[in-house]
């Protein structure tokens, strides 16, 4: 590792290597729990699709696939900047790294804006079955409501995770202002990156599951 990049030892550890591995492993194990969390929703979506193939297909055609696709591209690009930020952190170059992280978070915000616009379009199309005051627009099989509801559960849960991710990335780049940050906490950038990539990964599964496969 270059000068100025390193890890400040916490008291329970005996070596920097141990501390670094512990941090990464801890994050991975935590991400496993997140994976199981989302998988529960995916398995529900699959069961729904098996029980009511017709209704699910009919409802899925009303999802705005171009927004979903565009959002996937936005997240992939944000992941690109996050990877770059990790590479820069390893080289000890604080300011370009912070810039990359701001761009990453900015793309995350763009994703949320697009998602919000999509929700607005759904609302305009009367695709909000849980609002009692607004009649549901997609007539036919009741199972279509179910699919739309599940779409909101999955995408909103993902949005919550993304919001946490944006907060995390912004906090990290803010902390990195402090002189010598990378010489003490270099591994924190990589761990933040793991979380960000994972959110990207979940969306990469969400997009085909909801938008594409059911068409």
């Amino acid at each position: 590792m270059p000068d100025g990049v390193g890890i400040e030892l916490a008291e329970q550890f005996s070596s920097a290597r141990q501390q670094k591995e512990t941090g990464e492993l801890g994050m991975w194990v935590f991400l496993l729990t997140e994976l199981m969390l989302f998988s529960t929703l995916f398995v529900s979506a699959l069961i729904l699709r098996m029980l009511h193939p017709g209704a699910v297909t009919a409802a899925a055609l009303h999802l705005k696939m171009w927004i979903g696709g565009l959002n996937t591209a936005v997240l992939i690009t944000s992941s690109f900047f996050m990877s770059l930020a990790i590479e820069l952190s390893r080289a000890g170059r604080t300011s370009p790294m912070r810039l990359c992280m701001v761009v990453t978070a900015g793309l995350g915000v763009l994703f949320l804006c697009l998602k919000g616009y999509e929700y607005y379009r759904d609302y305009a199309e009367h695709m909000t079955p849980f609002f009692a005051w607004r009649p549901y627009g997609l007539l036919g099989d009741p199972a279509s409501r179910l699919f739309v509801d599940l779409y909101y559960v999955i995408t909103s849960l993902h949005a919550v995770h993304l919001t946490i991710g944006i907060g995390l990335v912004m906090t990290m780049q803010h902390l990195a202002r402090a002189p010598g940050f990378l010489s003490r906490h270099a591994n924190r950038i990589a761990i933040t990156g793991l979380y960000w990539h994972f959110i990207d990964l979940i969306w990469i599964i969400v997009y085909p599951t909801l938008y594409v496969l059911n068409r």
Partner: peptide
């Protein structure tokens, strides 16, 4: 739920009695 399990060779027209 007549919309599921569509029968081959027939157009689905039956309303749901749910």
């Amino acid at each position: 739920y007549p919309d599921q399990n569509k029968i081959a060779g027939y157009k689905q027209k039956m309303p749901s009695f749910d």
